[in-house]
Design a protein around this nucleic acid. Structure first.
Lengths: 210, 210
DNA sequence: TAGATTGTTAATCGATTAACAATC
DNA sequence: TAGATTGTTAATCGATTAACAATC
């Protein structure tokens, strides 16, 4: 019953390792955790433990086989299973996300956008934007597991409720507001202003003298 | 010498409290940490400790004065000091950020965009997009503390170096790559694909049976 | 053997929660 | 006084780091 424990931190480090390993010169066949740590600025024990958690390919003295490691990370992150997604709210940000190419690499497919008043029929990238009243129909014809909310804060809860009713399992929320959802739905808030403000505060704390 | 310790978690919770408190019905003059915690889904002790850290306005039995609390949070987050910012890379995402209204509330001013080939002269919101070769001039005429990078991964390090040379103190990096910066520069990576993938994995871990 | 590396166990650190004392 | 609340001290939890044993 209790879901498998996954560390969110680990989940964000693994793709970083993966990118790094993939970007290595082609002739590299083996790589050590120590080297990865050094190049990426992580602690070496941390990397070693992370890799041990998701792979058993590490050999003493030689390190990890590059190929095996890539396969193990991709396997752990389950890149081969497609995950269907839609986005509600197709302003600038919504359209940017609709045409963002980075998601597919992870097996995530953003199928379409929805908007109370679609600003255009299709994005430049060719994704269709439907009026809101088509949301339920669309969701019953496709397997949609993740919903992205990029509408103004005032509409976010309403949109969220509709997505939940459509059977969505996770919500990525860009609206600057908290959402109430049932326990089986996973929510991640991505409030860009809050995030940027945190950076600003850390920057200030980083100043030589106050 | 050692900079003041600030918990990043705290920094992201404070704006949430602030929004919540501001959204309370106008007649509310006092609010307890317990109430805030209950409504926002945080632990009550956590909220109490957070508020104690940034305010001394809590009175037993009655809770915190709404007005004082708002002032104390805004004060702690230093909303009154303007922070100048620029963004490099004005694709969809870059333009979305340029016209995003949420930053100003926090005292952050995104002054202009830069692009190797500006897609337009101005955003719909009226922000000017300059060609890249004006970057250094612009930065010497304005006080710019934060640089936002929204260019393809291949150009990110180069852009980053130029921003650092311009005296920027913090970088908000949307490019899917790690950046090398000197120690006095604060970097925050905002890789949307990684972030979304983490949500996807948490969603899977949240499923009833495996 | 010596060196490079993994992997594990214990220690530390930071954040959150629990328990409870203080007080209006 | 009883109740609601703050604020503090101790306990727990999770993540990271340190120390070190294993081994190719």
């Amino acid at each position: 019953m209790e879901p498998t424990k996954v560390s969110k931190r680990l989940l964000t480090r693994l793709p970083v390792y993966l990118n790094y390993i993939k970007a290595l010169p082609e002739e590299t066949t083996h790589i050590s955790a120590t080297k990865i740590a050094g190049d990426l600025g992580f602690g070496d024990v941390l990397v070693r433990k992370d890799l041990a958690k998701i792979s058993n390919g590490g050999r003493r003295k030689t390190g990890h086989s590059r190929e095996t490691l890539i396969r193990d990370i991709e396997n752990y992150l389950d890149y081969s299973t497609d995950t269907g997604m839609i986005i509600v709210g197709t302003g600038k940000l919504g359209q940017a996300l609709l045409d963002y190419r980075g998601f597919e690499e992870f097996g995530m497919r953003l199928l379409a956008g929805f908007d109370a008043r679609p600003p255009v029929d299709r994005t430049p990238g060719g994704k269709i934007i439907y009026p809101m009243d088509q949301l339920e129909d669309f969701c019953s014809c496709h397997i949609i597991r993740i919903g992205i909310i990029a509408v103004p804060a005032a509409h976010a809860q309403n949109v969220c409720d509709r997505l939940v009713d459509c059977g969505i399992e996770a919500i990525w929320n860009f609206a600057p507001t908290r959402l109430n959802v049932p326990a089986h739905v996973t929510v991640q808030n991505e409030d860009l202003a809050i995030s940027l403000n945190a950076l600003r505060m850390q920057m200030k704390a980083n100043e030589p003298e106050d």
